[in-house]
Design a binder for these strands. Structure first.
Ligand SMILES: [Mn+2]
Ligand SMILES: [Mn+2]
Ligand SMILES: [Zn+2]
Ligand SMILES: [Zn+2]
Lengths: 152, 152
DNA sequence: GAAGTTATCTACAACGCTTGTTGAAAAACA
DNA sequence: TGTTTTTCAACAAGCGTTGTAGATAACTTC
């Protein structure tokens, strides 16, 4: 996604108003690699603006998604996750234990569907979700660390 | 998944009671290839037993999942989908328009993660979701059919 | 078979995440 | 600055799903 300054420009040029709340959300998302949920974005933004509402966060996330600056993901963790990385094509690693999501920047060009197996579907895209255990959730024997459940 | 008769046996042998409602759900699921939601199962079961409750359907689906006879899927259609096909490893085609889910019975053995790209994740499984348009939702020029939004 | 024990059933309410609605406040335009 | 238009925050409601309760039915022991 673009920088907070560029997003300010983009919002204005697409007829959207620029508010302190929105700019705060731009800053929170910029450089975030954790694929935060709306609540996670709200939690961080609240540290800067105590009164910002969750609804405003959802609204702005949807605007950004509409503009193609972020993408919303459903990886089965119960909440929609938002991904500011829209430039490199990539897939995702999801922790079964704590729900952490990380990018897997690898292309699998050989993902060809065998002829006839599409059953008439017109296939447009393929998403791969790798499930497993993140470093923090692996048994201590392997990392020496203690697993910690991530709060929301 | 097993036949309704075998499931009856399995339920009894694992200390679960067998009721008419559960056997009705066994029959509904047997041979179903649509990856129904709990509500869809309930709708079909209700045709046979008008009073069966949605809660009972959820309960039985969870029992079957616990026994490994079905698997629950989250493919981003808003509802958990249940898959009685647990024997062939396969992936899924999901219609962006109506939410239909179909099996794609193809193995992709070359799904190797580049060294170092796992970022310390201990990867256990990979699911591929192919998104596109099912035959019923494609423009008429391609199939001659009229797209229809599927009810839930 | 009948009684007693245990699990299940239905109806209802509540949950977590997300979205609709409202009047008040703020941004854009001139 | 004044006018118009959009957004904000608070509240409530929507959705799919799960918890709770007493009534009911299935399994066990006689
Ligand atoms: Mn990503
Ligand atoms: Mn399937
Ligand atoms: Zn983890
Ligand atoms: Zn379709």
């Amino acid at each position: 996604m673009k920088t907070p300054e560029e997003l300010t420009e983009l919002f204005r040029s697409t007829g959207r108003k620029v508010t302190a709340q929105r700019q705060c959300i731009f800053r929170v998302l910029h450089g975030d690699v954790t694929h935060p949920s709306a609540e996670a974005v709200h939690a961080v933004a609240s540290r800067e603006m105590e009164t910002i509402s969750l609804k405003t966060v959802y609204q702005t996330l949807h605007d950004l998604a509409e503009l193609g600056e972020i993408v919303s993901l459903d990886v089965g963790t119960g909440m929609t996750r938002f991904d500011p990385n829209v430039d490199d094509p990539h897939h995702h690693l999801v922790c079964r234990e704590c729900g952490r999501v990380r990018d897997l920047v690898a292309v699998f060009p050989e993902l060809q569907i065998p002829k006839g197996a599409e059953l008439g579907f017109q296939v447009g895209s393929a998403e791969i979700v790798f499930r497993g255990l993140c470093p923090e959730c692996q048994p201590a024997t392997r990392t020496g660390r203690v697993p910690a459940r991530a709060g929301k």
